[in-house]
């Protein structure tokens, strides 16, 4: 036999044998997976935002079927995904309330100046660790866009040096909340549109010195707001999002101009 024929037969034979073994392995060693996992994974939005508390859409799909995770955890999917999931699993659950993120700081560059020139890593967490951040207010938005980078859908825009959430784009995954070193971002019901855009725990004079649109703790809004829907937490007015609040008076009368409708 010519060497070329020997080679061809050896390689070909080995290939056939291996192929046969693989075919047998695929049949006898197959891992049986619930086909519904793949189906659910296809239904989920695929943003892998982590808002449900699992590592991604695939992990949540598995958790729903194998670990009994509630089927209403996918906020981006909303009612549509919930309906599909209910059909597949046979479970029922209420649609979770539609929530959106809001950055509770209104002190943009024209209202809250910078204390010093920061030229380190352009990241809020790094800036926050450097001398407490370069913003005059030690509670306000630093403006280095860490939340914006973390947002999987690009719903956070930097406007005049502070972060603004586009309510209709937000999928309420909570990625931004975990990123903000100053804990300024809150998840609030979509229906609630009046916010106290300040998170400073300082006393009035200190707030005034640091920012033109800060909450000075005057408590006027708490008296105007219906059924205690704004309460004081120390020197800061805080909206109770569980209660209805639809009063234009609180917006007009706020001397700090920090209560706004978004």
């Amino acid at each position: 036999m010519t060497p070329i024929l020997t080679t061809a037969l050896t390689i070909g034979g080995a290939g056939l044998a291996c192929g046969g073994l693989l075919a047998l392995a695929a049949k006898f060693l197959a891992v049986k997976e619930d086909p519904r996992i793949e189906e659910i994974n296809g239904i989920l939005p695929g943003a892998n935002c982590g808002g449900c508390g699992y590592a991604g859409c695939a992990a949540y799909a598995e958790a729903v079927l194998l670990k009994g995770a509630p089927i209403n955890l996918c906020a981006p999917g909303g009612a549509e995904v919930l309906g599909h999931l209910a059909d597949i699993t046979g479970e029922t659950a209420k649609v979770a309330e539609h929530k959106v993120a809001v950055v509770l700081c209104g002190g943009d560059v024209s209202h809250a100046p910078r204390k010093f020139d920061y030229n380190g890593v352009a990241d809020c967490r790094a800036a926050h660790a450097t001398g407490g951040g370069d913003k005059s207010c030690s509670f306000g938005c630093l403006g280095y866009a860490s939340c914006s980078h973390a947002c999987p859908v690009g719903a956070i825009e930097m406007v005049n040096g502070i972060a603004k959430v586009h309510r209709d784009l937000c999928i309420s995954c909570g990625s931004c909340i975990r990123t903000c070193p100053r804990h300024l971002i809150k998840m609030v019901p979509y229906a609630r549109t009046i916010h106290v855009m300040c998170s400073s725990k300082d006393k009035g004079p200190a707030v005034k010195k640091a920012c033109k649109v800060g909450c000075i703790g005057c408590t006027i809004c708490t008296k105007l707001a219906e059924n205690e829907s704004i309460k004081m937490a120390g020197f800061l007015a805080v909206v109770d999002y569980e209660k209805d609040l639809d009063s234009d008076a609180v917006i007009e009368k706020c001397p700090g101009k920090c209560i706004v409708r978004i």
Binding site: G120, R125, A126, A129, T130
Partner: peptide
């Protein structure tokens, strides 16, 4: 590159 600044932040994280 702000190398030590990255380290500081990394250590804190």
């Amino acid at each position: 590159r702000p190398l030590v600044q990255h380290m500081r932040r990394g250590k804190a994280q």
